[in-house]
C-alpha cells in the first residue's frame, strides 16, 4: 500500500511538473504551426464537401508533417524531460534515495508522460480533423490507430534516451532530425531504421481504400499494416524494457 502511494505520488508529481514545464511551450510551436496550415488548407479550397483531392492533400499533410515531424517532437519534448529533467536539474538524487524500486521510478515517469503526449497528439489531431470538415472526419478514424502506436513507440524510445544520455533532449533532437527526417526519407530499405516509416506504412495502407497512394511508390514501399504495427509494438516494448533494465542498474555519477 505504501509503495503504491509512493508510486502514485511520483506519477502525479511528474505529470504536474511536465504539464507546467518548458516542454509544453516547446510543443505549442509546431502544434500551432500545424493548426495555421490546416486552417489555410481548409479556407483555401473554398468548399467543404468531400473530394478525393482534398482527402489526399489533408492525408499527405498529416502523414508527412504531423506524423513524421510533430508527433516525434511532442514525444521527445516530454519523453526526455520526464527523467532527463530530474537528471539535468540534479533532483533525481531525491528520488533515488527513496524506498521505491528504480524500475518503478521509471514506470511512474513513463505513466505520467504517456497520457500527456497521447492527449496532445490525439487532441490536436482531433482538432485539425474537426476543422477540416468531412475530409478530416474520415482521416481521423483512418489514421488514429497509427498515430497512437507511433506515439507509444516514441515515448518508450525517448525514455531510453533519457536513461542513457545526460543531455538526452539534445541527443534525441539529433536523432529525430538525422534518423527520422533524413534516413526516414531516403530511398531503399535504410528508412526502416526510422520509427515513422512504420507509422507512415500503416497510414498509407489505411488511406488506400480511399485511393491514397504514396507520392512515389518507387521511393516509398509501405510495409503490410500488421507487420508495421508489430514493428512499432516491438520498438516500444524493447525500448521500455531496455530503459527499465538500464535505469535499474545504472549509477548516475553526474548528480552531485
Amino acid at each position: 500500500m505504501k509503495l503504491l502511494r509512493a508510486w502514485t505520488t511520483l506519477t502525479s508529481l511528474t505529470f504536474r511538473r511536465l504539464l507546467w514545464s518548458a516542454s509544453t511551450m516547446m510543443v505549442m510551436l509546431p502544434l500551432s504551426g500545424c493548426l495555421l496550415l490546416v486552417l489555410r488548407l481548409y479556407y483555401h479550397r473554398g468548399h467543404h464537401e468531400y473530394s478525393f483531392k482534398e482527402f489526399r492533400d489533408f492525408s499527405e499533410f498529416m502523414i508527412l508533417v504531423f506524423a513524421s515531424f510533430v508527433v516525434p517532437i511532442c514525444a521527445l519534448a516530454y519523453g526526455t524531460a520526464s527523467l532527463g529533467g530530474d537528471r539535468e536539474d540534479r533532483t533525481l538524487v531525491f528520488l533515488l534515495v527513496r524506498p521505491i524500486p528504480r524500475a518503478l521510478v521509471l514506470l511512474a515517469k513513463f505513466t505520467a508522460t504517456l497520457p500527456l503526449v497521447l492527449g496532445l497528439v490525439v487532441g490536436s489531431f482531433w482538432l485539425y480533423c474537426r476543422l477540416s470538415g468531412e475530409v478530416g472526419q474520415m482521416a481521423f478514424s483512418l489514421y488514429l490507430p497509427a498515430l497512437l502506436a507511433m506515439t507509444f513507440a516514441y515515448v518508450c524510445l525517448f525514455h531510453l534516451f533519457a536513461v542513457a544520455f545526460r543531455h538526452s533532449t539534445i541527443i534525441a533532437l539529433i536523432y529525430a532530425l538525422f534518423m527520422e527526417v533524413l534516413l526516414g526519407n531516403l530511398p531503399g530499405i535504410v528508412k526502416r531504421v526510422a520509427v515513422n516509416y512504420y507509422g507512415r506504412s500503416i497510414m498509407y495502407s489505411a488511406g488506400a481504400p480511399e485511393g491514397l497512394k504514396s507520392p512515389d511508390p518507387e521511393w516509398f514501399q509501405p510495409l503490410e499494416p500488421e507487420t508495421a504495427m508489430w514493428a512499432l509494438a516491438g520498438i516500444a516494448v524493447a525500448g521500455l524494457l531496455l530503459a527499465l533494465i538500464v535505469f535499474s542498474r545504472r549509477e548516475y555519477r553526474d548528480l552531485t
Partner: peptide, 8 residues
C-alpha cells in the same frame, strides 16, 4: 512531497 514518496 518527499514524505509522500515514502508512502505516507
Amino acid at each position: 512531497t518527499m514524505a509522500r514518496l515514502h508512502g505516507f
